[in-house]
Design a protein around this nucleic acid. Sequence first.
DNA 1: CCAATAGTTCGAAGATTTTGGAACTATTGA
DNA 2: TCAATAGTTCCAAAATCTTCGAACTATTGG
Lengths: 110, 110
Amino acid sequence: MRPGSTRELAHPDAADLVLTDVLFALSDPARLEITRRLAEGPLEVAACQPTGGDLPKSTLSHHLKTLREAGVIRNVPHGRQRYVSLRRDDLEQRFPGLLAAVLRPAPAGE
Amino acid sequence: MRPGSTRELAHPDAADLVLTDVLFALSDPARLEITRRLAEGPLEVAACQPTGGDLPKSTLSHHLKTLREAGVIRNVPHGRQRYVSLRRDDLEQRFPGLLAAVLRPAPAGE
DNA sequence: CCAATAGTTCGAAGATTTTGGAACTATTGA
DNA sequence: TCAATAGTTCCAAAATCTTCGAACTATTGG
């Protein structure tokens, strides 16, 4: 296992997160659902698949890229697969309360 | 002053607000700034103009439309002009904490 | 090693957004 | 009543996003 042989992806520093980018990343239904799923805990890429959806690998990968570049998730190599996780602490530090508000299910009632 | 002669614009009911639509509306820098400006209080359309920006009327109007259709703002006729205001209560009821998190200035610090 | 696995990246087509000029509409001050 | 004011709507061009097949890259089980 050569050092640096794994394909590390770029992640913005917590301090560099941009609110509009985060909001944009979360403004897509599929990406929002991925985010909610990740709130339960880290997952491998394939398991991020939104409910009932069978997005092609490339599409799912693109959504993850959007979330990652906005700083919402972290995507690290793990053997043959990858672990995707929510950047909870970084988001909370930079935009306090945002994640909680977004993850909270909307009150029922028409 | 004929009844119904004023140009009323459509506004979604509070219960029908969609989170992803709200997030999308707020994900544009100009629209986010308009929203922040409105947090201080209602304004006429022209006064919503983002700082230093001199957006053409039509562009500004379009941004307001996006915010209005997402349910972020209300835009009502008022004489020759219009009053634009933040739908604070509706947003708070439907997505508790969201507006506060978005309006709060990001913590300083690199 | 080799093949299978798990994903990313490339590229291109189609859909949506963004922008802004021009035309249009109400409303009011003079 | 008329012109000026304050905005919206219409339209089209340019930019950006979304989607997904296909090619490519690591990694590991056998």
